[in-house]
Write a protein that binds this DNA or RNA. Structure first.
Lengths: 172, 172
DNA sequence: AGGCAATAGTTAGCCCCCTAATCACCTTGG
DNA sequence: CCAAGGTGATTAGGGGGCTAACTATTGCCT
């Protein structure tokens, strides 16, 4: 498991230790390992999610947008979507373009703001969500099936704290 | 903290419950929440990492490649890099292109395989790693600073198991 | 009222990652 | 010994995300 070259994906404690020593730093190798594993895990999970949504002709971003729209009654402005999904407005434009091309959402001008637009979930979009719901949620559940209820609670807590800590990466 | 609209980023248990109910599924909302939070956290951390590496004129992928190269004595074939970093060979080609353009690595033809190339860490590349080491590792350490030693160990374990579970997303 | 900063949305250009297809070279087996 | 299949690397084309810059509209403030 700590072998080299075979699994080739998860960074090891040895690697972290070697690096820290190589530069003569006084940093805890385990802390580095946790950080590196999290970054690596994030990428892996992200790609798995992308493959998952591809089955339904969607991507992670497009699904999140659709689901958020539905949860909000089927209508929302792009700016609001950007804030709620925590991505840039430009990204929302791109996601809406794709979803509109497939007829899963529609854009209509805002009635109360001349600059504004509102994204509307179409019947087709709602249908797509319905069609995939069972398999989608089933797989999500299976993904965390290896953890007990208590472990899940602990994981949620730790994850939230590390995510908060990740601000330290980008700070300044 | 479970309020809506303010933090606008982390999905809530309420949302998960609403969705599951909406489709009349027998799925544990907490399990869904954990999965969704993980996916969302992965994206967030990934973007933070990208911003972090941008400070040094690198990206996550480029840094990982450089670090792996150094840890391996400064030389490795693209295929080997692809396997060890767990990305496609095409991605490695792109990363090497960028790094070569900046003079951080060089490509030279393999001596024992006419098809092969080997990526070599240049002095400039090694220097770049040295220059950023202190800040880089310091920030990584700060990122997980909110967790105690024991919590880090627990987190590593849970993370590994969830990542293993993420195969369930892409399976079939 | 008139000017000007703030906001909504889009566009353009960049990087990362992917898959599929291509070309070159290696290796094996009839 | 040479054809066929395998492997190394690249290219082409796609999607997602970002920032910065641009257009249009709003709304505040003097």
């Amino acid at each position: 498991m700590t072998r080299d070259g075979i699994d080739g994906e998860a960074p090891t404690l040895d690697q972290a230790r070697r690096q820290v020593e190589h530069y003569g730093l006084e940093v805890d190798p385990q802390a580095v390992l946790v950080a590196v594993r999290l970054i690596s895990a994030g990428a892996r999970v992200g790609r798995a999610a992308e493959a998952h949504f591809a089955r339904f002709g969607l991507s992670t971003g497009r699904y999140r947008l659709l689901a958020d729209l539905e949860d909000h009654g089927g209508e929302k402005s792009p700016s609001r979507l950007a804030a709620d999904l925590d991505v840039s407005r430009a990204t929302i434009t791109g996601l809406l373009d794709g979803l509109e091309r497939e007829g899963l959402i529609a854009r209509r001008p805002s009635t109360e703001d001349g600059r504004g637009t509102v994204a509307v979930l179409t019947a087709r979009g709602a249908q797509r969500l319905r069609d995939m719901a069972s398999e989608h949620f089933g797989r999500l559940e299976a993904m965390v099936g290896g953890l007990s209820i208590e472990e899940r609670a602990v994981f949620l807590d730790l994850l939230a704290r590390v995510v908060r800590g990740s601000a330290a990466l980008a700070a300044d």
